[in-house]
Amino acid sequence: MDHVFLYSAVFISLLMLVSLYRTAAGPTTLDRLMGANAMGTKTTVLILFLGTAFGRLEMFVDIALAYAMLNFISVLAASRYVLKRGLADRP
């Protein structure tokens, strides 16, 4: 039963590797930011799934919530920096 969640977690981490390609190779800064955001969204779910797999969900759900909040704030900060100061590497 809980193995389903473990295998799903493995699958999500494989997808995160694919998103990492966009983060590393994206032509503009915003591509990289977007890849990082996609990875952050997946990480929130990944933390919850790992919590289920370890049987300690009541502990991991706090971490997931905190991670979601910090991910949101970091994406907002980075995009606001681009908004105000512009891109350095215009294609």
Binding site: A66, M69, L70, I73, L76, A77
Partner: peptide, 14 residues
């Protein structure tokens, strides 16, 4: 403390 600071930073960003 980090989360409290993050809420202030969010005010600064918005």
């Amino acid at each position: 403390g980090v989360l409290l600071a993050a809420s202030f930073i969010l005010v600064g960003l918005s």
